[in-house]
Nucleic acid binder design. Structure first.
Lengths: 264, 264
DNA sequence: TCAAAAGTGTTGAACATACACCCATGA
DNA sequence: TCATGGGTGTATGTTCAACACTTTTGA
């Protein structure tokens, strides 16, 4: 989508009236919604291995009545984008997010397949701003699930939840790639873990997200080298082996991070 | 913004009516605009060194009448987000973009400083979806500038264009960091160059964006190693020295790249 | 004492940086 | 021939994957 434009170049009008920040949609059918992809880690029902799960909401009206969709809702005029995403997450899981980040704004005119063929007056054009959130492993157990809400393993969505409503398949695919890319250059994986944790748990989080095994010794060195965790001095007890040290993630200096992308 | 939520957790309502993709703003003052940060490379007027420039548009009405702002405009109900950004770019420069990518959606309730203090009925709440574009060096010369449009060196905006309208200072700062980060792991720099170019030109683009000199020999090796350019077999003529080979950037397999972020 | 996972050390390959040096052209 | 930037080669240091090996607990 970025590269190569349509070479269509009509005559350049002088932008005398160029006038940013002013689009009233009062008269037209243009709507603004905020959706959230909520990731959590749970054992896979078949293999028992830790994998990504996420909640979907069954649509109870047209369009796409009966299909599964990402949780979300309309943006209230007096509500920030993040607040809206946070509220959505609270409604579907009962939890407050540990990590909440903007993913992308989806706004193609034909983004909901139904709309392409149908009357545009019945199906309004919707611009969605999508966030993604990570749920802490220890809190996940306390998550509450509402009516018409169900959790699915991320990689089984296609089979188990059929095609999703709107273009949410595309969005979900993008969110997954984004998470997997970001985990390699940013310490977001920590957001899945409790206050204190052994390094092996952190490694298991990485393995679950990336879907492959990591060398324990090299992993340890890399994490310690990047300085995103610090030793608490405590150790875990009651294990059937040498008790591991407990670490906590070093407080990130909140450097104005809006986001940073990466797909490659 | 991502990390640490407000721990505010009221009682979780079951999301029985959770209903994504439906926000009519007909009755409220909520507007949707698309703005674009347009980057081009030109010599700096003082030092003569190649630096980033971008066009700003002077506002001709309230709010922020008289101040400089990012080019942009309201989103038409039947227009894609990218199309809107593309149109904006065409209006301000007369050009078709070589690289166009979504940056971020800015939608805080109080994002335009004026609004914070003023009556909310007079200053509507605006959600802006911001794109960034790169202009090819050879096309830049042919750029047309409209009325109330002026180009500035990116690093001199604060002094020369004063504080920008809305929160466009923040947006611009973010766009610059994003560009500088992305150039290190993605071949976007090529988008500034013509069809065929010597490697030294590509190096100068990198140097301009990063603001520091790069070792020519190592740069060559890195670029050739990553396989983003290919030898055309031709050479540039008319130079006062050994004629350099001409390269072209290898066609990127258009892998569904929405975006990928990166800050640090 | 054995199994299992924590944790340390070592080695070799791949890559990056710095810089010496040769090449091809116009003037 | 010389000045200039294009282009190649090489030495040194750093990072990283693989894996052998030691440590510490519960059973």
């Amino acid at each position: 989508m970025p590269e190569v434009p349509s070479a269509a170049a009509t005559s350049p009008r002088p932008a005398s009236a160029a006038h940013p920040e002013a689009a009233t949609c009062a008269a037209s059918s243009l709507e603004l919604a905020v959706s959230t992809v909520v990731f959590s880690l749970r054992p896979h029902p078949d293999t028992g291995e830790l994998t990504l799960w996420l909640p979907l909401v069954r649509r109870i009206r047209e369009p796409f009545h009966g299909l599964w969709a990402l949780p979300g809702g309309p943006l209230e005029p007096e509500q920030d984008l993040v607040s809206s995403a946070r509220a959505t997450l609270h409604q579907t899981t009962g939890l407050a997010p540990r990590h909440l980040e903007q993913l992308y704004a989806f706004g193609d005119v034909d983004r909901s397949p139904a709309r392409a063929e149908s009357d545009t007056t019945t199906t309004p054009r919707v611009v969605s701003i999508v966030y993604w959130a990570l749920v802490r492993q220890d809190e996940d157990a306390a998550a509450v699930v509402g009516e018409n809400v169900e959790w699915f393993p991320a990689d089984d969505i296609a089979e188990e939840a059929g095609p999703l409503a709107f273009d949410h398949d595309v969005i979900l695919d993008y969110a997954l790639r984004r998470l997997r890319a970001k985990v390699t250059y940013s310490p977001i994986a920590h957001a899945f873990l409790p206050e204190r944790f052994p390094l092996a748990d952190l490694r298991r989080v990485y393995e679950a997200i990336l879907g492959r095994a990591l060398d324990p010794s090299n992993f340890r060195r890399q994490i310690l080298a990047q300085g995103t965790v610090e030793d608490t001095g405590e150790r875990m007890t009651g294990t059937a082996h040498r008790p591991p040290k407990l670490y906590r993630s070093t407080p990130r200096r909140s450097r104005y991070t809006l986001t940073i992308e990466e797909t490659s």
